[in-house]
Design a protein around this nucleic acid. Sequence first.
DNA 1: GATGAATGAGCGTTCATTCAT
DNA 2: GATGAATGAACGCTCATTCAT
Lengths: 191, 191, 191, 191
Amino acid sequence: MRKKESKKEMILNAATSLFAHKEFHLVGMDDVAKKAKVAKGTLYNYFKSKEDLYFSILKTRLNTLVNSLKESYNANENAWNNLKRYIERIHKFMTSNPYFFMILKKEEPILEKKKKIEIKSTIDTLKETIHKVFIKGVKERTFRIETANELVTDLVLSMTDTVIKRDLKYNDKTKAVETFLGFLSTIILVN
Amino acid sequence: MRKKESKKEMILNAATSLFAHKEFHLVGMDDVAKKAKVAKGTLYNYFKSKEDLYFSILKTRLNTLVNSLKESYNANENAWNNLKRYIERIHKFMTSNPYFFMILKKEEPILEKKKKIEIKSTIDTLKETIHKVFIKGVKERTFRIETANELVTDLVLSMTDTVIKRDLKYNDKTKAVETFLGFLSTIILVN
Amino acid sequence: MRKKESKKEMILNAATSLFAHKEFHLVGMDDVAKKAKVAKGTLYNYFKSKEDLYFSILKTRLNTLVNSLKESYNANENAWNNLKRYIERIHKFMTSNPYFFMILKKEEPILEKKKKIEIKSTIDTLKETIHKVFIKGVKERTFRIETANELVTDLVLSMTDTVIKRDLKYNDKTKAVETFLGFLSTIILVN
Amino acid sequence: MRKKESKKEMILNAATSLFAHKEFHLVGMDDVAKKAKVAKGTLYNYFKSKEDLYFSILKTRLNTLVNSLKESYNANENAWNNLKRYIERIHKFMTSNPYFFMILKKEEPILEKKKKIEIKSTIDTLKETIHKVFIKGVKERTFRIETANELVTDLVLSMTDTVIKRDLKYNDKTKAVETFLGFLSTIILVN
DNA sequence: GATGAATGAGCGTTCATTCAT
DNA sequence: GATGAATGAACGCTCATTCAT
């Protein structure tokens, strides 16, 4: 049944792969239509603007990530192992979507306010999911007490992002994340 | 005498403020000319392209930052105080140039290769400057030994960036940086 | 049914008439669009650049001319009558396309090398077509033997061009060509 | 005394050499100023526009040519030798000014009407000068009677032009003009 | 007279969006 | 729903001309 992909899915898949490798402004609707094997006008039957298309992808991808994290949670494991798995998944996600986190830091009017709020709420869920593991770790007395702070969640996300960018720059796909996890453990875990 | 700003400075100031708030593609040369109170053609007397203008700003601003850090260095102080002052200055710089660090993470060909290399070398100087303080701290035996690692320099920069973005989002100009410095001290300093 | 001209034809007709009266640099794409009653963007759906538009016209028109000559050839007639008819057609063509022969003499890089080669090959066909009549005339022993020379073909073309320019200058549409044909007969035919 | 060239002469010399190798639209006033080692504004002290500069050169150069022809005239020689020398000089002139004759055929509004009339009068002098040699040749009974016609003068000029263009195209600086003179003698001279 | 920084109308081209079929 | 030809505002950039010094 996977054969019969809906037009909408074809567009989303095409656009996702394009936006993943190029900036918003460098992806043309022509490119999307071509890659999706669909007429340009068809794009506008499903998405009311380029921005809307972009936004939908962002939302979809982030939800996928959040679900992937939630799904990987294991109550019987210790917090550090959970966190490690989270970071690995986030790392993998960021590697194939290097532009998605960038947009979130912007004050740019690329996205309408209403849409931004939707995205923001998904991000909040993402952060809460991570945050809970920190809480769990502190309760376990394996994480430092200062880490049960939203700021730390943000910092972990941005550090992960930095690690990805280094990976991409140096074509060093594996070492940095391990080094990072090592460093992270000295930061987070009680000695 | 500050009244008599050179045309080039007027353009740089106008463009800096525009690029600081909007992406490269969303800033038009018309906007720059208008803001600089200069004819469009004049822009091209000083900068050979939009990219060149952007690049010049990036370079100038980064040099300013690097010089500011170097100038604030005090050999008689301990490493942590030096680092704190660095971070404060970087924080201040990032606050008024929120987009400048973003571009550096992109793989996008907005900048020509040669220009990118120039920028990269300035960034490298910036990182070395910070890195030296970590070395100093490790020598002093006040910084953890693991911190004498380039990755840590990168992480500190990106964490600082994240803190700025939070500040901007929550209009909470002072607390985050203090909290951050507190957290940073638990990460970096030997207990 | 001539009412329903295709967009491409509308553009070609508009551009032809503009390029026929003004130099390449003095014809704007705005002018073409306006005259063709088409949006400027539409021009670029059919021609990838101004140069391409210009080139297409040149090619099309020259092919029309060459076909017109070939079609007018009559193996049963003597060479001089064939040549006269050729010159009349060339004359007519040049009258309505006074700028097209000018471009061919330029060394200017208005046209890309590859495109120039295409045009040149059409011109070569044109010259060969004329040249053959000279060969035929020499075989018939009605043309002087020296005329079976490529240079003469060129000279005849340029003389025809000169005649057109005089016609246009003096608004004397018929006499010059007749006088010219008379003179040409004394040049070409054996006495 | 040749050392102290006037500013005006410097400009004229620079512009002449530039217009000789490139089309009107492809020569910039910047280029002229640079080549003349003069500030751009200075150009406008001597010539009220780019067109005026171009026009002045055209006039000057044509006068030089006409004077050169007149000066080379020798009443004691036969017409054919005079004509040959004329053509050699015209050929040489055209070779170093390949664009100057092109402009004369145009209906282009590059030149104002008044200016065009001035140029035209110089051209008329040029043609008369040549025409007189044809008259002389006919009187001598060495030239065909039909050649004492203004059209023939025009044709000779355009043929010469064609020969230059071939020379330039094939880098065959000497043969074409000799072949041409040979052919011309069969056209013009009584058998 | 000489300068060259400043000008701004105009250029060729792009591309998100529309709409008749 | 699906199409893709048509649109036109907007873009980065050029260059003949002006004018304060």
